[in-house]
Write a protein that binds this DNA or RNA. Structure first.
Lengths: 213, 213
DNA sequence: TGGTGTGAACAACTTCACAGCG
DNA sequence: CGCTGTGAAGTTGTTCACACCA
């Protein structure tokens, strides 16, 4: 992979992730080859945008022909680093945490669930998918350290999110994905993404309000 | 509200939603008044950005003083249209659907859950929060029509998402929020947002991969 | 011929810097 | 005096249009 050293837009990275989905679907629909036109149709992105996005990382297509769907999927996974093995943990095994743990997505994208934590006595010891049992949050620091867990997913309520983040950081976590509706604060070296599911709904309300006018 | 008629950046709308959260927290921490500096600190947005965002919609602050936290929260809710009443339905009462239904968020932001649907025989008839029982998906069109439901949230697996979307549209839905990992297609008039939870994880993997280099 | 890859034009968004006002 | 509100400058991201090549 020859990464060209111009800075890559954050938006491009976001789209790469959706391209993977669409390429999988195109393969399932028996398209060994696709074009920026067809792929764009499939994931609702302009063909020019797709070509530009890919051009940041190299040349993956054949002029006059298009892209090999399977090969391109592999290339994008390589770019995103999904061919690595990412030891991952989920803290907060409520409905949202369980929803995430259920996804086939994890293993397909290289995220290996090593541990899950909850503060609820009744949940501790329960076995979740992948033969992992739920541990008390007091074990976070030790486990992250011992198992060399690099990614932490926070799906706790807002009021314990910061505390949990601190414990994960103390254990030596590298990246955090926070679903709690509060922006947690961590040292500079930690890669952090705060996700707000509900803001999408607010967004929808706004768009609908505009239309009424 | 005096909406100035320059076009408002989509990113601005996204941030307004987070400002609400932060303003609530600031109030809880006994700050009747805040500044763009303090609010920015609280939600990790630059002060200039906050002032610019608000300036699209009017003048909400007092020079030399700052913003009334409670009043500003109300203003933003008004801007986003969260003071309306949005009859809402959730289709697909799996873990993710249940996670959403549990949120206190809904009622606070004007979304009233009117109905929930699932195709699983065993779930049908079960009562979920708010005294709403789960109905079979065959009832979608009729119910949306009769109850004048305007917002539909799709939390089904990928392979039934399009079918469900079609039924909601047939019933006369106005806006759709799709969490299924496939971009559904609907007529132009429908306001649609596709949300990809998992792409955030891919994003995190990418950022961590970069750091290793 | 037909679809990629890409510089150059364009558009969107953010930051700056300071005037204006309580 | 201090903090907002805002044009203007700067930055980032998208679209265009066409050279290029299997």
């Amino acid at each position: 992979m020859k990464t060209k050293e111009s800075k890559i837009p954050e938006a491009t990275i976001k789209r790469l992730s959706t391209y993977i989905n669409c390429l999988e679907r195109l393969q399932a629909e028996n398209n060994p080859v696709t074009s920026s036109e067809m792929l764009g149709e499939s994931c609702q992105v302009s063909p020019a945008q797709i070509r530009k996005d890919l051009s940041y990382f190299g040349e993956f297509g054949v002029r006059g022909v298009g892209y090999d769907t399977k090969k391109l999927e592999g290339e994008i996974k390589e770019i995103l680093g999904l061919n690595h093995n990412w030891p991952t943990t989920v803290v907060g095994v409520g409905k949202l945490g369980q929803a995430l743990l259920n996804f086939a997505f994890f293993s397909k994208h290289g995220f290996r669930i090593i541990a899950a934590f909850d503060s609820d006595e009744n949940k501790i010891g329960n076995e979740i998918a992948h033969g992992v049992t739920i541990l008390p949050t007091t074990e976070i620091e030790k486990t992250v350290k011992n198992e060399k867990i690099t990614i932490g997913i926070i799906t706790t309520p807002a009021d314990s999110a910061q505390e949990v983040a601190d414990k994960l950081v103390a254990g030596g976590i590298k990246g955090l994905l926070n679903f709690a509706p509060i922006k947690v604060k961590v040292p500079e070296i930690i890669t952090l993404r705060n996700v707000s599911i509900t803001s999408e709904l607010d967004n929808l309300a706004y768009l609908l309000t505009q239309k009424k006018r």
